[in-house]
Amino acid sequence: MALRNASLSVNKGEILAIIGPSGAGKTTLLRLVNLLIQPTSGLILFNDVNTSGDDKHQRSLRRQMSLVLQYPALFDTTVFNNVALGLKIRGCPETVIKEKVDNMLAVVGLSGFEKRMVKTLSGGEAQRIALARALVTEPKLLLLDEPTSNLDPKNVSIIEDIVRAANTKSQVTVVLATHNLNQAKRLAQRVAFILDGEIVEEGASKEIFEQPKDERTATYVDGRMIY
């Protein structure tokens, strides 16, 4: 899905929800921010730094972010190895990796799962491991792409609590792409509505959900939009 007129800013330390129907361009937007794809035109700034440049430059910026997908995208190995991977890529010493992974598994409530193969995990556990892998590198920006859309209410709640804690305690900036409006209301301070690759409206969460300026936003948040 191509994006156009996608001018959007995220403030440090906030949770921004990008809402919109399936196929609106939410995932494309996150992949652009994560520098996995390049814009054909326009500019992406990260901490006021232009993200365009060579691989090395982009990799150094990418290492300050983390991405969690709707599908956990875990590697076929143990829980420990999955959570540790980002740290190993960054060349952290083994002792530091062990300590950080242990701490992060405790944060996501999966201490003792280190030696489990990921194939033996439930969907909720797997997504919590994906979140642990994303957070253990202490990213400045956490990108979440429909992270709970396949999960039961209990795991949704657990994931949301972890994200909220990372945001409040560690000041991790979060961009959450979701079509779950209630989740956006629960988590986000600001919300952007995207439709057909265009940012239709952005503003404070209360404003978007209670007093949207654009008719299309109103139609969507009221559940009247047919797509």
Binding site: L36, D55, M65, L69, A73, F75, G86, I89
Partner: peptide
């Protein structure tokens, strides 16, 4: 998606290849 996740995690081209080969 795993290939893309390796890149997203910050892997350089060599690390990416090694991760994929291990997979």
């Amino acid at each position: 998606r795993l290939k893309e996740m390796a890149v997203s995690l910050g892997a350089d081209p060599l690390q990416e290849v090694r991760i994929i080969l291990r997979e």
